[in-house]
Amino acid sequence: VEGINDCAEVLVAALMDDRERHIFGRRTLPEMDMASLSCAIQNLWLASRAEGLGMGWVSLFEPQALADLLGLPVGAKPLAVLCLGPVKEFYPAPMLVLEGWAQARPLSELLYENYWGVSQ
């Protein structure tokens, strides 16, 4: 969270108001707008890293309070606060693993073939 104070740029990624008519597939899968925004954020993250920039995704905020602060229209929803900018160095491994919050899992535990729980 301290990255908000330290980064070069703070970006807020939000879903627009009246988005239902613009997102293909949202009538059958309402999450498609969130999925599309998540893909855009990942692409920005990968491009940033390729350019030697760091990016962090802050999710510790109250969405309506941030929407009010930014004057977003009714129906719009902020989903991410992104901290972007130069960093002194990158972690040698995922921070959650280094800090002991999580353990890396083999990819074979996460990929299934044809049916849930059936590994390749």
Rank of each mutant, 00 (worst) to 15 (best):
N5T: 00
A80M: 06
L66D: 05
E113A: 10
C7F: 01
A65G: 02
V12K: 03
M32Q: 12
R19D: 09
L29R: 15
L46G: 05
N114H: 13
P73D: 08
A40I: 01
G71L: 10
A93D: 12
D33F: 02
A104V: 08
R27P: 00
L66M: 09
I4T: 06
A47R: 08
I23Y: 04
N5E: 09
L29Y: 15
C39R: 05
E62K: 13
A102K: 15
P86D: 03
G52F: 04
G75Q: 07
M32P: 00
P94A: 10
A93P: 00
A102Q: 14
Y115L: 14
R27H: 10
E9S: 09
S59G: 15
R26V: 14
G54S: 04
R27W: 02
L82F: 07
W116N: 09
R19Y: 14
Y91D: 14
Q64N: 05
L110G: 11
R21T: 08
M16F: 07
L37M: 15
E62C: 11
D6F: 10
Y115F: 14
L82D: 01
L66N: 06
L79V: 12
L60G: 13
I23A: 06
L46E: 03
V12N: 04
Y112Q: 10
W57Q: 01
P30L: 04
E109C: 06
V10W: 05
P73T: 04
P30K: 11
R21Q: 12
W101V: 10
A104F: 01
E9W: 13
F90L: 06
L70S: 07
A102I: 02
D17I: 02
Q64D: 09
M95L: 15
V1I: 05
E20Y: 05
I41P: 07
E99N: 11
Y112L: 07
A8S: 12
F24S: 07
G71T: 09
A93R: 13
P106E: 11
L82C: 07
F90A: 09
G100N: 10
D18M: 04
K77P: 00
P86R: 06
A14T: 13
V81F: 06
W116M: 12
M32R: 11
A76G: 05
A50N: 02
E20F: 05
L70K: 07
V58M: 11
D6P: 00
A93H: 06
P106G: 09
E62G: 03
